[in-house]
Amino acid sequence: MPRSFDTPLPIDAVLDDLARTLDGHNAAVLVAPPGAGKTTRVPLALLDAPWVRDKKIIVLEPRRIAARASAERMAHTLGEKVGETVGYRVRFGSKVSRATRIEVVTEGIFSRQILDDPELNGVAAVLFDEFHERSLDADLGLALARDAQTGLRDDLRILVMSATLDG
């Protein structure tokens, strides 16, 4: 059961279903309107899933500002500073530590990460946020993550999140 939060968001209504889906499957698509809480609530809700254990969740954002802002919001929700449970890696900067379990990264950073470590060791899930914005880096990242999942890591979860995709 996903953790509870002080401030309710529209996405809360589907978090249990999403957790059950990812318990039994290694891929899913989540479609919800803008502002529903996909970016900042879903990674936190999945953090305690049994399949995550001591691994990380990587959240891909299309822009540096979005990556930093969503990491800040999630850390604030936990009552922490960025770089503790939630951190980020973007071009020209990062705030992560050994304690970081959710890493918000830009799509270009993820492409380099998965090329350096095709198995994505220590990663439980990759969440592709704002996927409807489509970019070469996002498409490449998804293709490489699916390749890792089908060839090396069938336990790797992939979640594509969007406001406008046809689920």
Score class of each variant (00 low, 15 high):
Asp166Trp: 10
Gly151Lys: 11
Pro10Thr: 10
Val160Tyr: 06
Leu78Thr: 12
Val52Phe: 06
Thr85Gln: 07
Arg134Lys: 04
Arg63Lys: 05
Met74Cys: 02
Ala67Met: 00
Arg91Cys: 05
Lys38Asp: 09
Thr150Asp: 10
Met1Glu: 05
His25Glu: 05
Ile102Met: 00
Phe92Tyr: 01
Leu120Ile: 01
Pro33Gly: 15
Ile65Arg: 00
Asp117Gln: 09
Val90Trp: 00
Glu72Asn: 14
Leu159Asn: 14
Ala125Phe: 09
Gly93Trp: 08
Trp51Ser: 01
Pro118Ala: 12
Leu78Ile: 04
Thr39Tyr: 10
Asp166Ile: 00
Val126Thr: 11
Thr40Phe: 01
Phe128Val: 14
Asp17Gly: 10
Thr77Lys: 04
Ile102Arg: 01
Trp51Leu: 02
Asp16Arg: 13
Arg91Pro: 03
Ile57His: 01
Ala19His: 15
Gly24Asn: 10
Asp12Met: 08
Ala163Glu: 06
Ala163Trp: 13
Thr150Pro: 00
Pro8Ile: 07
Leu127Trp: 14
Glu80Val: 00
Leu78Arg: 08
Arg64His: 06
Val126Tyr: 02
Leu30Ala: 04
Thr85Ala: 00
Val104Tyr: 02
Ile11Trp: 15
Ala13Glu: 10
Asp12Tyr: 10
Ala143Phe: 06
Thr164Leu: 04
Val160Phe: 07
Pro10Ile: 10
Leu115Ala: 11
Val105Cys: 00
Asn121Ile: 05
Ala125Glu: 00
Arg64Leu: 04
Gly167Gln: 15
Ala28His: 13
Tyr88Trp: 13
Pro43His: 03
Ala28Leu: 13
Gln113Val: 03
Val82Glu: 11
Ile57Lys: 08
Pro2Cys: 10
Leu152Val: 13
Val14Pro: 04
Ser135Leu: 06
Asp129Trp: 08
